[in-house]
Design a protein around this nucleic acid. Structure first.
Lengths: 190, 190, 190, 190
DNA sequence: TATGAATGAGCCTTCATTCAT
DNA sequence: CATGAATGAAGGCTCATTCAT
C-alpha cells in the first residue's frame, strides 16, 4: 500500500491557490484543480474531505507560510524599532514576491467561505509577533493603543498599497517604500 | 402597455446586496434573488442583461450612494482640516450604518468579477473629494505625498477597523474613534 | 378602431420566413421575429393564435404563391409537351429566384411541425397542374404510371439539383439545365 | 476505475435517432434522450461535448452504417448494370427497413444544424460507389453527365418515393418497384 | 492509493404567452 | 389595435461527489 504522496498534496495546494486566485472559489471546479495538479478529481478526495475542507486547509497552509516569512531575521537582541522595521519590510516583500498567495488570502478576508475557526487559526500564527508590540508599548516606543488599532495603522496601509501594486495601479519604488515606512512610523509612535 | 417599475429594480438591488454579501456572488442564485425581491426570475432579465451585468450595476449603484454620503456636510467655507474631519467621520459612520453595503463593495475590491470599467466608474464618484486633498497639499497641511499613499494612510486603517467592528471583533466607542482619528491625522500631516 | 394592418402581417410573414429558414423553427423566437418585423411580440398574437399557427399560415402562404408561380404562362392551347416544359422551367426558376422561400418549405417537407392538414392544403394548390399529367397519359405522351411515380421522376431531381445549387455545391448553367430537362423528358415519356 | 461503456453510447445513439426523428432536434431535450437511453442527463456529456456534438456524431454514425448497407453484395466481377441494380435496390431496401434512420438523416440534409464538415464526412463514405459511376461512363453505359446530375436522377426519385411510402401516402409493391427501376434506368442510360 | 466513469441537483438563461395600459 | 413589461416553465450544461475497478 502506497502512503499519501506529499508531492500530490502540494500540487493540489499550488493548483488551488493559482486557480482560485485567478477565477474565484466558486468558478474553480474540482476537475480543473485536478487537471492543473495532474491528478484525477477523485484523488483530491483522498487528501481532503470535500471542496470546503480543501479550501480551509489550503488557507491555513498559506497563512502559516506567511507568518513564518514575517518572522524571518528577527532575533531577541533587536530593539523594538529594529524589529518593527524588519517585520514591516518582511511583510512588504512577501506581498510583492508572493502576490498570488497574498491575493489568495485576501480573497477570503471578508468572505464567509473560510470558516471562523480557520481564520482564528490563521491569526494565531502571527501571535509571536504580538510580543514585540507589547514590548514596544512597555518601552513607550509605541503609542498606548490597543492591538487592533496598532495593527490597523501599522499594516492596513501596507496591504492597500501592495494590492494596488499587484494590480499595476501603483509603482512602489525604493523611495516610496521609505516614505511609506516613515509615515507608518510617525503614526504608531509617540 | 406596462411601464417599468422602479420599485422592482430597487427590490432587486436590495435583495442582491443582502444575499451576495451574506453568501458570495457565486452561491447566490438568480432564483434566490428573485424570490427575495418578490419577482419572477425572468423579471430580473428585464432590468439586467445577465447575472454579471446585474452585479456590475448594483456595484455602481452602491458606490454612487456611498460617495454621496461621504460628501455630506461639506462646504467650500470649511478649512482643509475641518473638511477632512467631516469626510473621515462620514466614512466611518457610513461603514457602520451601512455595514452590509460596505461589505458588499469590499467583497469585490480585489475580485475580477466586477469589471475594470465599473471599478473606475465607482472611483470617479469620489473625485470631488480629491480636490480637498490637493488643497491640503498646496496649503502644506498634508504631507507632500502621492494621492495613493495619502488614501492608504487616511482610509485603509478606518476600513480595517470598520470590518473588524462589523464582525464583532472590535468595539468602536467614541473614545477609540477619537484616538483613531488622531493617529490618522498625525500620519498624514506634517 | 384601426383594422388589421396587412403590411404588418406581411412583415411578420417575411421575417418569419427569413429567420426560420436561416436558423430553424425552434431557434427562432417570437421576439426575434417581432423585432425583425418591426412590431412588438404581443402584436404577433393579434394576427396569429400562437407560434404554431403562425408557422402553418406562413407555410400555406408560401405554398400558394409557389403554386401560382408554377402556373405562370400556361394556357389551354399548349400541347402537353409544351405545358410540361413551361411548368418544369417555372419550377426551376422559382426555386432559384426564391431560394429562401423554397428552403423554407423544404424544411418542413419531412417535419412533424407543420400539421398534416396544412400540408394537404399546400398540395391542393398544385392540383390544377395535375390535369396536364392526366392529359399526357391519355394522349400517350407520358408513360402509363401513377401520379406519385410521375411526380417523383419529374420533379424530385430538379429539387435535388436546386438545393445543391442554393448551397453552392453545383452550378446550373443554361446547358446543364437543358441536359437536365432532356433526361427528365426521357424518363417520363414513352 | 470504470471503463467507458459501449452499450451506453449505443443506447444514446438509438434514443437520439428515434426522438429527434419524431420530434425534431430542438424539441428533443437532453433529458428526454437520457431517460430514453436509461442514463443520467450528465452521462451524455461523458460521451459528447454538447448537444450539437451529439447530433453530429450521431449523424456520422448513421451515415457510415447506411453507406455500408449500400455496398452489400457488390463485387468487382459484376457488370456496371448489375452493380447499379444492386446498389439501387440496396438503397430502396435500406430506406424501407430503416425508415427512422433514413428520416433522421433526411431531416438534416438541408439544415445548418449539422455542420458542413460532418456532411462532407458523411458523403465520403459513399465514395467507393462513385467508382461504379465512373466505370459506367467509361463503358458508355451511362449518359455522359456530371456526377451531381447522375445522382439526382438515379436516387432523388427513389428517396421521394421512399419518404411517401414511409408516410403511408404510397404503397410500393414489387411491380411498382420494378417500374421505378426501369424508369430510372431509362433516364440515366444512353 | 488512484482513477475515469457516472450522476442528481442545481443554475443561468430563454421563451411563448399573457397582462395592463 | 398595439405594446413593453412580466412570468412560469423548461432546457442545456456544470459540478461536487461517489462508484467500481
Amino acid at each position: 500500500m502506497r502512503r499519501r504522496d506529499g508531492k500530490k498534496e502540494q500540487a493540489i495546494f499550488d493548483a488551488a491557490i493559482r486557480l482560485i486566485t485567478a477565477n474565484g472559489f466558486a468558478d474553480t471546479s474540482m476537475s480543473k484543480i485536478a487537471k492543473a495538479a495532474g491528478v484525477s478529481p477523485a484523488t483530491i478526495y483522498v487528501y481532503f474531505e470535500n471542496k470546503e475542507d480543501m479550501l480551509n486547509k489550503t488557507y491555513s497552509h498559506v497563512k502559516r507560510e506567511m507568518a513564518s516569512a514575517l518572522a524571518n531575521g528577527l532575533s531577541p537582541e533587536l530593539s523594538v524599532a529594529e524589529a518593527f522595521k524588519v517585520i514591516w519590510y518582511n511583510f512588504f516583500n512577501y506581498t510583492l514576491d508572493n502576490s498570488v498567495k497574498f491575493s489568495f488570502t485576501e480573497q477570503f478576508a471578508n468572505s464567509p467561505i473560510v470558516d471562523r475557526v480557520r481564520k482564528e487559526e490563521g491569526m494565531s500564527y502571527f501571535l509571536p509577533l504580538l510580543a514585540w508590540f507589547e514590548r514596544g508599548i512597555r518601552e513607550k516606543v509605541f503609542r498606548n493603543i490597543s492591538m487592533e488599532l496598532f495593527a490597523a495603522f501599522a499594516f492596513a496601509p501596507v496591504m492597500a498599497l501592495a494590492k494596488q501594486h499587484n494590480c499595476g495601479e501603483v509603482v512602489l519604488d525604493e523611495k516610496t517604500l521609505k516614505t511609506a515606512f516613515d509615515v507608518t512610523w510617525s503614526a504608531i509612535t509617540r
